[in-house]
Design a protein around this nucleic acid. Structure first.
Length: 421
RNA sequence: GUGGCCGUAGCUCAAGGGCAGAGCACCAGACUGUGGCUCUGGGGGUUGGGGGUUCAAAUCCCCUCGGCCACCCCA
């Protein structure tokens, strides 16, 4: 075969989809309990939404977007991130008019042209939630709580949440100046990447992975020491609310968000089960995003959670997932018109039974083998001999016991036997 | 975008210049109308793709595509 799925965009096959469905259903239920409504934005946006929302200088915009020109000459981009499109929709439809805050969640594919590796794909799926319209720390705590409880609802332990603040327009510039002042005399000692970061993304100096650079980073000024009064109070408020809810976190001034729109609260949940790509969810506050998109000042806070990574962790933690679904009944034929089996199956399905029929015109032995492989609980044999006598044979696969059931009362007889199991 | 390891049947893997194989899976038969166990037989391959070296390439060389892992970055 030369035709393959695009790189970094794996198929999810029927053996896997039950696990996905379980995870998605659980996440939706947690969102529902928190009073969040689902929003579905298109898979593509005008490229501008990401350039202005996420920030033109970010890695996502500079080198990871799937951008194309449509037949009308418009530049569109596959959804590269979850929050900016939600804010765009909020502004476009003036959702704030229905009362603030708006609470929304989404489960949708995200596209980034990255080199695939463990836990990283070019198409991945994010569950995310946003509270738009509230500047209050209670909103931060609520939506972070949603993320934590969602992870727990899947059967995992309370996640390892790292919490910090990236400040705002008042205090962040002051901090960046202090950070640069600290690094400027040390530029000869750090790696090439860090020298580049010094120019383009100084906050990222803090999470370099090289051991000697980490040592230097440890001595750097802490943003938490530079927060302005309002930002400091906001973080204290978030912490108080989280403590009250029993949401655990560690204050980690080294965490950094990769997108330009973040202000104040920032967090990341890490797993030791994921290799290098260890963030299960990340998020924070984005009070400047609406303005960057050309809307009125509108505060917001939210997170994105990677479903592929969640599934990986679930698998490694051995949390049982639903298996592939088996039919309750397999209808086999022996010398019988296939249409009799199809018609019977059609009737039983309307009664709610899950029924599979042989459509390979195979011998009875092969049909039994197939029924066994599918995990069918019962096999109904429509044989010509039995049909003459007005009956069919119902066999319970686990025990091998079988009995004749009257054709006239087939539906209820089969249904009651299957349900009695 | 950078680096390392790896691509042989549906799956797991042999064959390291000389006829492409095994186990499992699949299909059929033994069991003429009954799954699991056993036995017998069968179908399956441009050895990821392209080029080169050679009398001869799965095997050696180059390019390319893909997978895994790490960097960068992120969920």
């Amino acid at each position: 075969m030369e035709i393959r799925a695009p790189r970094g965009m794996p198929d999810i096959l029927p053996a896997e989809t039950p696990r996905w469905q379980t995870v998605e259903a659980t996440l939706r239920e947690v969102a529902r309990r928190h009073g969040y409504g689902e929003i579905r934005t298109p898979v593509a946006e005008h490229t501008e939404v990401f350039q202005r929302g996420v920030g033109a200088a970010t890695d996502i915009v500079e080198k990871e977007m799937y951008t194309f020109t449509d037949r009308g000459g418009r530049s569109l981009t596959l959804r590269a991130e979850g929050t900016a499109p939600v804010m765009r929709a909020f502004l476009e439809h003036n959702l704030g008019a229905q009362g603030l805050p708006a609470r929304v969640y989404y489960v949708c594919p995200i596209f980034r042209y990255d080199r695939p590796q463990a836990g990283r794909y070019r198409q991945h799926t994010q569950f995310g939630a946003e509270v738009i319209g509230s500047p209050d720390p209670a909103a931060d705590a609520e939506v972070l709580g949603l993320a934590v409880r969602a992870v727990e609802a899947l059967g995992l332990a309370h996640p390892d949440v790292h919490l910090s603040s990236v400040g705002d327009a008042t205090c962040r510039p002051r901090y960046l100046e202090a950070l640069r002042a600290y690094y400027r005399p040390r530029l000869g000692d750090v790696c090439d990447d860090c020298r580049r970061r010094f120019e383009t993304a100084p906050l990222r100096l803090l999470d370099c992975k090289r051991a000697p650079d980490r040592e230097i980073a440890r001595g750097a000024p802490r943003i938490l020491d530079y927060l302005c009064g309002a930002c400091g109070a906001h973080l204290a408020g978030v912490r108080a609310h989280l403590d009250a809810m029993g949401i655990r976190y560690t204050i980690d001034p080294m965490i950094v968000r990769g997108l330009d729109y973040y202000t104040r609260t920032a967090w990341e949940a890490l797993s030791g089960r994921l290799g290098a790509q260890n963030a299960v969810f990340g998020g924070g506050r984005y009070d400047r995003l609406a303005e960057q998109l050309g809307g009125p000042p509108t505060p917001g806070v939210g997170f994105g959670m990677g479903l592929e990574r969640l599934l990986l962790v679930l698998q490694q933690e051995g949390v049982a997932g639903a298996g592939a679904s088996s039919p309750e009944l397999f209808i086999a034929t022996a010398g019988t018109e296939p249409s009799r089996a199809l018609a019977l199956a059609d009737r039983l399905r309307r009664d709610g039974l899950s029924v599979t029929v042989d459509v390979m015109a195979r011998g009875l032995r092969a049909q039994m083998k197939q029924a066994d492989r599918l995990g069918a609980a019962f096999v109904l044999l429509l044989g010509e001999d039995e049909l003459r006598r007005g009956v069919a044979v119902l066999r319970e696969m686990a025990t091998g016991q079988q009995e004749d059931v009257a054709l006239a009362r087939l539906g209820e007889a089969v249904a009651s036997r299957v349900r009695a199991r």
